[in-house]
Design a protein around this nucleic acid. Structure first.
Lengths: 369, 369
DNA sequence: GCGAACGATGAAAACGATTACATGGCGATT
DNA sequence: AATCGCCATGTAATCGTTTTCATCGTTCGC
């Protein structure tokens, strides 16, 4: 592997000049710059990033720390981060943690010195404390922050508003008993969505007792198992809000087995708008969250701090969550062959996504694009 | 940030000793070692990885290069890599490329020097050439290799065998005309699956004309659109093999709209066994590929070469693809409430996955676990 | 009791870049 | 014509490690 010295010798200049050609080329005359670039290309020279970051204290990489459980949502977040990072010529180091606060700390320790900034998806309030301390000395952006996080930047999804809108929609369709399949207790997204469900019920003058809540863990099988509870509930709820789409899918499947018709006997609404929701029967009414955009925004919020290597300020931004009405909620629908022009998401970005379904925006503070 | 000098001064030893404590502790007396470790912990010292890799020429990181289109399959592959890497104390640098060979080359260039080895998922044969050259000087493991790749390690999925088994299964159920929804032409997985379809048809003495093939791009909407072709085909095929599950889902959805019953009027089989397949109605018969294991194996194949920094040899390994029979193919089934104990995949590993469905192994060469 | 062998430690030379500072040449200003 | 700057370039210090080689007691064998 050629070093800066080889290039300098071959080009008949000093290593300082070669270095300048690769950094602030303005300091070098056009003639020598092109000459040096030619030699460098011929020698297949590329600056050694270890040496470079040793002296500059910059790595040109950012870390992404996620909970171990993957799935479509996380995958889209990473994709958004990656897309944005590529455009900004930053590398992305992903790392996952498993359960405990302790492994989060060790993951951060292992990342330390290799990255200029960190994007972390905090699962619960406990882990939050460990990160907050770190964030006073290092640029950190939180995905799903809890109530307080003055030291870090923070991106969040309008979980509360989205859930509220979903449940309010069900209430407006005449449902009086609306159940909930929760996410894990302590999980910040799950808690906010549960709160939105509760408040929307109260605002509509309906019962919001915990008897209507069923525990879940965001997995399909949790949704599947929840069906039994609802079917035996007295009186049986006529609608259920699921804290994510995977659980809604499991629930739909179990209800079909139990010969409970959706939406006639029980209306269902999910959360996240994963790609296949529109292809289910009935097509899933859900709350759309642009996970890819979430990742992209997180990177852009982090980058200025990563560049300057100073801790992030308490800046926060919320992404809207909009209700997408399809068939599973039983609302009257314009008769459109919806999936025909379906979101072109698996072909990447670029192609504009046209949505034909009704969309009721339940936006937090209005995120810039 | 404390450096090795700070620790050395504070501990009253030389920097060499501190370094040895963190590397081969055997060279240092037990007493000083624990003393130094104490000081290091107090000062919150951690070796600077840039300085370390500058002199050792090792980064303790591996790169993962994937096509831009994400989805459940890729997400699981990354997860497998990440899990294995974490256990081996390696970091994972992910990077995606968009379309062209050119961006692959630039992505590799940007990664160069930051990683000890590379796992790359090659989309087509053209990109393959660019990588092969690089692989003569650097440890590379290919996911989905083409026919030839003597310079790199290679992991592959038994695409051909899986597709063959799926189609043979349909033929054994009495289907005489079996359609195909292809993946992109030139895509190595797609081509192999198409070849498996064709050969299985011929082996069963059936027609394998291109009139039965419909183009697709692995997206749900491609499957949705393919429905029209099959419905109007004369004579209409009684079964269709889809090159992945997403397309099968789109197809199922469109057939339902067209009031074509599955499996009675048309049997459907997919490929990949994504998590929600079992929750569809009818539950999707598919070919199971353990994407997570694929990632894990790739890392373990790469690691010895990454450690020694010498190019991989032509070692190759194939992961089995096993037919999972559910309802969409119309085969008689043991009456089991299948999803009840469903795969606990979203909760991570650890929990053993129990499958109740019939499983016909269509294994290439039998991969070690 | 003496040289050898050994075990623990230290001194110093890399690794490959960036950048503050020094230098030299040349055009413009006075 | 002398001076002042400025522009392009070179010199050398520096970043924080690892690792080779040297050193210095100890202990052991005889």
């Amino acid at each position: 592997m050629a070093t800066i010295r080889d290039v300098a010798r071959e080009a008949g200049v000093s290593i300082a000049t070669v270095s300048r050609v690769f950094n602030q080329a303005t300091l070098v005359s056009e003639a020598t710059a092109t000459h040096v670039r030619g030699i460098a290309a011929r020698l297949d020279y590329w600056p050694n990033s270890a040496a470079r970051s040793l002296i500059t204290h910059r790595t040109h990489a950012i870390g992404v720390l996620l909970p171990d459980l993957y799935g479509e949502f996380f995958s889209e977040v990473i994709r958004g981060i990656d897309l944005a990072a590529r455009a900004e010529k930053y590398q992305v180091l992903v790392s996952s943690f498993h359960d405990s606060t302790e492994t989060i700390v060790s993951a951060i320790r292992a990342l330390r010195g290799r990255i200029d900034g960190l994007i972390v998806m905090v699962p619960d309030a406990e882990a939050h404390t460990a990160i907050a301390e770190f964030a006073t000395r290092f640029p950190v952006v939180l995905l799903n922050p809890g109530a307080t996080a003055p030291e870090c930047g923070a991106l969040s999804v309008a979980n509360y508003d989205g859930a509220y809108a979903a449940v309010a929609h069900l209430a407006s369709l005449g449902h009086r008993r609306i159940g909930l399949v929760r996410g894990p207790v302590g999980n910040l997204d799950a808690d906010e969505r549960a709160r939105g469900w509760r408040d929307a019920l109260r605002a509509a003058g309906l019962e919001a007792s915990s008897a209507l809540e069923v525990a879940g863990d965001f997995s399909e099988s949790a949704g599947f198992q929840a069906a039994a509870s609802f079917v035996h509930m007295q009186p049986r709820p006529s609608a259920v809000f699921c804290a994510n789409d995977y659980m809604a899918i499991g629930l739909l499947s179990a209800l079909r087995d139990a010969e409970v018709r959706v939406p006639q006997d029980m209306a269902i609404v999910g959360f996240d708008d994963i790609a296949i929701g529109r292809y289910l029967t009935p097509a899933l009414t859900t709350v759309r969250v642009d996970a890819c955009l979430l990742g992209e925004r997180a990177l852009h919020q982090l980058l200025p701090f990563a560049r300057s290597r100073r801790p992030a300020d308490g800046q926060r931004e919320q992404l809207p969550a909009s209700l997408v009405v399809r068939q599973s909620c039983g609302a009257p629908q314009p008769a459109l062959a919806e999936p025909q022009g379906g979101r072109a998401r698996r072909r990447g970005h670029g192609t504009a996504a046209h949505h034909r379904e009704d969309r009721l925006s339940a936006n937090g503070n209005g995120a810039p694009a």
